[in-house]
Each structure stands twice: as structure tokens, then as C-alpha cells.
Design a protein around this nucleic acid. Structure first.
Lengths: 200, 200
DNA sequence: GCTCAACCTGTCTAACCTGTCTAATATTTA
DNA sequence: TAAATATTAGACAGGTTAGACAGGTTGAGC
């Protein structure tokens, strides 16, 4: 259950936080309060509904991003394609990049829900990618699955840096699918506005 | 999400705020309203589009790109630092990246006004960067200066792909500064408060 | 060049919403 | 746990609104 503080909500719609508080006080915007100082917390869905009702444009990072979008970062194109095939069959939308530049571009422009990342790639430092994802606020909820043939200490390091799951190569397709669906379940299509994932 | 009030928009194009409101009411200028008193808020991008369509000059501080920001993409850190030093002295803000991943990240997050790009880098395809910049809408007016020791046909190819200037290595610092200032003149910071410059 | 109508823009008003500032303190981060 | 950051309420200053009216600009017709 994702919530916003008054400051965050204010920034998202370009007003002062004081104004957001007044909207809450007037009952225009639904919010609950924390026991301590009485901080307001606004459910994202309530905020979005408020924006919609008020005809205020909804910022990008609140748009319901494709919950089934996976970015595969692996310089070995055949390996990447293999992941792509398996995951597409499972119902995910998959995007593949094989170099660092496009990894950076797609990461920021797609805001994928999950990343499958190799560590040892010529030209891309998997650890650097991991570090970036973990420090970038707009990717806060992005999951990272490291799929690598690197040695154990590297894999351990990846975990320390914030990888959600590490799969040592080689692994079976079934393992990949299992971990991916655990990390990023495909939402069942009740009430999901987008059309594609409901076709599955 | 950056927005303008009617007063701010009015100051930016040198009219009375009442006039801005009338433009909005007539549908000439897109805006949304706050729930409280019905204050208008105008998205900067909508305002810029309106100015463009109306042939009204667009004030510096609304330009989408950071006016004096240069992104140096070169895997040789000493070379990149050397550019950085020279250009900083000239008055630019300079950001350096030495790998493709961060090139992608910084390109999208900083929207630099000018890129200094090497072509032959292990791990980064300079041509791919160039192609991307030229097809990405939000980087429409980004200038690209290719600084490379690549052979002549590569440099020619870079021009075909949309590079604004090609500097074959080696070149003198003075040459670099000259080309950069030509492509991306530093806006004179006369401390003019925002909006007033259009009133003369 | 002149007149006139049509229309756009600036000015003024009162009401009231929004932004700014403060000190205190809760929440988050290291 | 300590330090850094964020949030709160209240008071005040400043900005924004709609409507009405006046002044200015534009273009057509003579």
C-alpha cells in the first residue's frame, strides 16, 4: 500500500505542501494521519483519483506503469533472447538491451518493474547498474534479478548492493520463471485498466 | 511537474495576467485548475508550445535544455577531464561520463545543451549515441560535437547522422572552446529577474 | 487620411485561496 | 543512537479570481 506525504503530493502536482494540507482539511482529498505528530499520508490511488476529478494532469511516475514490464540487460544477445522468449510466454512484456548506453536509456524511459541483469559484461558494469537503480528514487520499487555466471563473492556483493534475487548460471528456464513471478507477479486482470495483460 | 500561475506566465510573455486568463478561457492556452478558488496552472511545456505557435520569443529560463550544461562522453578519463577543465574555465557547467550506461542516464536526466562525443570507445558505440540523440524528441535541440581520432569516413558518417561539428583529434584547446561557444553560447547572466527580459 | 465598429487588453475591486515563514518535533537516514 | 531531513499549525503577506469598465488596437469602408 503506497502512500504519499504532503510534501510529495505537493511536488507531484506543483503546489505548496501547505495547500495540500488545506485540501485534506477541507475534505477534498482523502488522507489518514499518523499518531505521532499527525502527519498526513495519502494513498496513491486516492491522490490519483483526486487529480482525475480535478482535471489535474497525472505525472508520469504515478501513471500505472506496466506492471508486467521486464528489462533484460545482457550483452549476450542469444541469452537475452532466450530469457525474452520464456518470459513472453509467461505473459510478461520484455525489453532487451545488450549495451550499457541503451541500458541507461531504457531504464529511465521505461521504468521497468523488474530488471534481469548480468554482472560480467564487457562495456557495462553490472554493479554500477545495480548501484544506480538502488539510489534512483524513481526506480525505488524496481526489482533486480541478477543472473550471472560470476563467482560467489561477486554474487554476494550483488546481494549487498541490493539485488533482490541472485541466480547463478546456469539455471533452468523454470527457475527463472519461478523467481520472476515471485518478484513481480502478473496482476490478474480484475480492474486492471490496460488491455494487454488481461489477454495472457 | 513544473507549472506556472497566470501571473508568472503573464510576466514571462510581457502581458497582463488578465489576458493570460482570457487566452485560457478561449482555449488558446491549455491549463488546469486547482480545486480551491479555481486558480489556473499552466504546464511549462504547454506554455512553451503556445509561445511557439504564437511566434512569441521563448524566455531563456523556459528553454527545455540546461543552457550552459555540457556532457562529455569519452572513455579516456584524462581526455575528458582535460575538456572539462578548459570548458569550466570558459564558464560552462560540465559533466563527464566514461561509460555507456552513465552516458544514457545523464543524457536523459540532465538534458545537456551540448554533448562532446568520442566515436571509438570500447563499450560505447558513439554512433549509437548520436543516433539516439537525433531521434529523441526531448533532445531535439541538443548540439553534438564529435571529438574523435577516427578516420575520415567515420567522421563523415557522424556528420550524416547529425553531428553539428566534427573535430578530428588532436586539436588545440582554443579550437574546442571556439567551436563550443559557437554551438552553445553562454547566455549572458545579467541577473534579469525572470520574465522581465521580454518587457525590455 | 479619416471614421467607426469590433474586439482585445489593462485597470480596479472585494473576496479568499495560496505561498512563506516560524519553532517545535516527528520521521527517516546513516 | 545521533544527525539530518521532513512535517505540522498558525499567522501573515501576497497572489489570483470574476466582473465591470475604460483605453487602445485593428481593419474595413469611404
Amino acid at each position: 500500500m503506497k502512500t504519499l506525504t504532503t510534501g510529495e503530493a505537493a511536488a507531484l502536482c506543483g503546489v505548496n505542501f501547505r495547500t495540500v494540507i488545506r485540501w485534506v482539511e477541507k475534505g477534498l482529498l482523502k488522507a489518514h494521519r499518523l499518531p505521532g505528530r499527525g502527519d498526513h499520508r495519502i494513498l496513491v490511488e486516492d491522490f490519483v483519483e483526486f487529480l482525475e476529478c480535478s482535471d489535474i494532469p497525472i505525472p508520469m511516475n504515478l501513471q500505472p506503469l506496466n506492471p508486467a514490464l521486464i528489462l533484460v540487460i545482457d550483452d549476450q544477445i542469444e541469452v537475452a533472447r532466450s530469457y525474452e522468449r520464456v518470459l513472453r510466454r509467461t505473459g510478461y512484456t520484455v525489453e532487451v538491451v545488450t549495451d550499457g548506453f541503451h541500458a541507461g536509456i531504457k531504464l529511465l524511459s521505461l521504468k521497468p518493474n523488474l530488471i534481469i541483469l548480468d554482472l560480467k559484461m564487457p562495456g557495462v558494469d553490472g554493479f554500477a547498474v545495480l548501484k544506480f537503480v538502488r539510489q534512483e528514487k524513481s526506480l525505488k520499487s524496481t526489482k533486480v534479478l541478477v543472473a550471472s555466471g560470476a563467482d560467489e563473492s561477486s554474487l554476494k556483493h550483488a546481494i549487498e548492493l541490493g539485488a533482490n534475487v541472485v541466480l547463478p548460471k546456469p539455471f533452468a528456464n523454470a527457475e527463472l520463471v519461478q523467481e520472476v513471478t515471485r518478484l513481480s507477479p502478473i496482476p490478474n486482470d480484475t480492474g486492471v485498466p490496460r488491455g494487454l495483460q488481461s489477454r495472457v
